[in-house]
Design a protein around this nucleic acid. Structure first.
Lengths: 341, 341
DNA sequence: TGTTAGCAGTCACAACACGCGAGTGCTAAC
DNA sequence: GTTAGCACTCGCGTGTTGTGACTGCTAACA
């Protein structure tokens, strides 16, 4: 038994209505609401077939049908039409992003905020640490005694700073000398490279040649690490947690609590948000999510990279009944606003 | 009718039990559990008096009593004994803070996290912008073309940076000259001072005398502002939102949702967390909170300042039935760990 | 005068039965 | 292949009842 056009239409109708109402959909509802030219009895027969094929389920014997994960999957893959957001909604997202362009520290967060606002689902953004950044220039600035500030300028023209305690008092001459040697030794390297033993011994050598104390090398490198956020845990922003309480599928307090547990647990979130692969927007539905508490949820994920530079992930999480088309559209709007198409 | 010692004891017993169980407390329960040498009938009479005085209420005619806001207030002000946290709990807080000492950006957040973990209540931390900071030293670092990074070292030895686009290409000589003039002009000023017209005209004058383009002054000052976070909205961290769902008083979904609405709304949070005055820890109970959704909550707030420098506020929010003694103890532990006593 | 036992009265709450209405599956007719 | 009609199912809201946990009151007692 194949899925002919008529069954498709009925399935789409069930899903559309269920997304809107969260109530099982009766045959008669569809017969009345959609102009398929079919009686409720015929639709009943088709729905029975759809159930046999696994695209819908009846929560109990004499109830209407609700879509199954398999039903949503078919819908998302084949049926779902692109839907445009309203002008205002688009404007809201574009505006939020344009204000933040260039301020990458807050862009991911603002993007999540705008999407959460438009879609009314919980939205999570992670922000990548900068270990791939290429060092362009390093300069030390004296602070007090042996304490100096180190300023790192990257090839992407981001500026980071941190403080370092040198083994000796930081005289202006020392500071400028160390700045010069450091810049010379490290310009062009990525932060990741600094972990390489070769780099460290090379720097020791250069420091020695310049008549500088080689004991400085290690604290300096460690400081660069921390300035670039290598050992800093990745940042995660969760926005719109309260939204999940709006959906009747989480009216059960235990479920809501379990889900919140995940949404406040940074490590779980990091795992949750990471797309499994590829640069395409990825959708996982219900049981496709491995975590037990997410069996009633769907997650839409996207990687955010601009000009080959990976900035972070974004994920929208809602009930399996979520409005996939709307969320996809919101995401697309955001990606387009970032010039990613 | 005064509140004699016996009534006090009974009230304390009611509050203690109610904090633990969230169930109305019966006279017989107290007679059995506490060794007051009184029968349930006597306690019943006393409870009746306490109700007349407004310290307890009976949710319905034949139920036990629960404390009223007035009852909690009396308890907090006069009865509550200091309670010590367990060794592990104290260690947890102290450890969290010691790791962050000196990193003020994350200290407030970690403090909130530790307190939320120990107390199991939602904890909110705000972080003050640095407008009171005194500038000690400013140095420019060339980035690319006319773009320079400005590094600001404060008297508290915090280092901040930002980028500025100068009206002309930033040659090394120009950069070092501007650094010198800026440092000379601004050392000792607070960031707040920079808003003063006098400072701006003074800087213009000094730039002119040094043969520098006075058009630079304004972008430089603006950059200092943004580096010090003046125009940046104040940061707010909310930790343990899910905790409120654990308490039966928020089993009602509408209540939980309303409260979450507040806990995710930055502006409301900022208003919520700010203590009304004085440096003491402040407790507001139930209806003492003005917001409607907080009528069933109590909030414990504290200002965090170290060496006259104000870093932010912290607030713990829970049901009126919250374990005040435990929260106070956790806060005290944290404040002591910061050297504030 | 304060304390206590005893008892009637109140009320929330859980368990149960009941009826209603929404929906289905099946059958027979078109 | 489609549809009307009908019996059957099941969730859900409502009303009923019994039970247990309390209290307030009264009268007796130290």
């Amino acid at each position: 038994m194949g899925l002919n056009d008529r069954k498709m239409k009925i399935l789409a109708a069930i899903i559309k209505d269920y997304i809107a109402t969260a109530e099982p959909i009766a045959s008669r509802t569809i017969a009345k609401k959609y102009d398929f030219g079919l009686s409720s009895a015929t639709i009943r027969n088709e729905m029975s077939d759809l159930e046999e094929m696994g695209y819908v389920v009846a929560p109990h014997a004499s109830s209407g049908r609700i879509p199954s994960d398999k039903g949503y999957r078919l819908y998302v893959d084949q049926v779902m039409k692109k839907r445009k957001l309203s002008q205002e909604q688009q404007a809201l997202i574009v505006q939020a992003l344009q204000q933040e362009m260039g301020r990458m520290e807050t862009m991911m967060q603002e993007m999540a905020r705008a999407i959460a606002l438009v879609t009314n689902y919980t939205t999570i953004a992670t922000q990548q640490t900068a270990k791939r950044h290429i060092i362009k220039h390093i300069q030390l600035v004296p602070v007090e005694g042996a304490v100096v500030a180190m300023v790192i300028v990257t090839a992407e023209n981001q500026v980071r700073n941190c403080t370092v305690v040198l083994p000796v008092t930081a005289s202006p001459t020392l500071v400028s000398k160390v700045s010069k040697v450091l810049s010379g030794a490290l310009a062009g390297a990525t932060v990741e490279d600094l972990g390489n033993v070769m780099y460290i011994s090379m720097m020791r050598h250069q420091f020695g040649q310049a008549g500088l104390d080689t004991a400085m090398v290690e604290p300096l490198i460690n400081a660069i690490y921390s300035a670039m956020g290598i050992d800093e845990p990745q940042q995660v922003h969760t926005i719109g947690i309260k939204n999940i309480l709006e959906y009747p599928e989480f009216a059960d307090l235990d479920k809501a609590r379990a889900l919140m547990g995940v949404l406040e647990e940074k490590d779980e979130l990091l795992a949750l948000v990471a797309p499994s692969g590829g640069d395409k927007i990825q959708i996982t539905i219900g049981a496709e999510n491995n975590e037990l508490v997410l069996q009633d949820c769907s997650i839409i994920r996207a990687k955010i990279s601009i000009d080959q530079q990976f900035y972070g992930n974004i994920a929208i999480i809602g009930p399996t009944r979520m409005d996939y088309a709307q969320v996809m559209s919101a995401l697309q709007t955001a990606l387009t606003a970032l010039g990613l198409k």
